[in-house]
């Protein structure tokens, strides 16, 4: 916690070098972190939804979350978790992109007679 207390103080003061190093953290780099890679990715996803980020940004973030061991359920639950805070409009806007990123083709599901097949039919 000491290390984190130092960082928080520096941020409050807007210490340029600390801000820069925080921003420079890549999507895939974590310091030995109290929260694991998967949680970190899901948190970022929540933030992206709340920020009304472009579709490609969700997709990139979801790919990282999946790679870190998140399940499709985790992804959808994240959407649910931020909904009360981000607002209905943002959640609705994010839903299609989110669905596609976890492999659920909503367009096709809406068109098909039977929406129960979550896995895309390979019988093409």
């Amino acid at each position: 916690m000491d290390e984190r207390e130092d960082m928080l103080r520096s941020l409050v003061l807007h210490d340029d070098s600390v801000v820069a190093s925080v921003l420079a953290m890549g999507v895939n780099t974590w310091d030995p972190s109290a929260i694991d890679a998967k949680t970190s990715a899901l948190v970022r996803l929540g933030a992206l939804i709340a920020l009304d980020a472009p579709v490609v940004s969700y997709q990139s973030c979801i790919a990282v979350a999946l790679a870190a061991g998140a399940s499709a359920d985790d992804i959808v639950d994240t959407l649910m978790a931020v909904a009360p805070i981000a607002g209905g409009v943002r959640v609705v806007a994010a839903a299609p992109a989110l669905a596609l990123a976890i492999g659920y083709d909503i367009d096709a599901a809406l068109e098909a007679h039977d929406t129960t097949t979550a896995i895309p039919d390979e019988d093409r």
Binding site: V55, Q59, S60, A63, A97, L100, D105, D107, A108, R124
Partner: peptide
């Protein structure tokens, strides 16, 4: 050909490019 919307194709293509 794949019976999906062009939007889906584009999304998947982008994912491919990124990977």
């Amino acid at each position: 050909r794949l019976y999906v919307s062009p939007h889906t194709v584009k999304t998947q293509a982008i994912s491919i490019y990124r990977k």
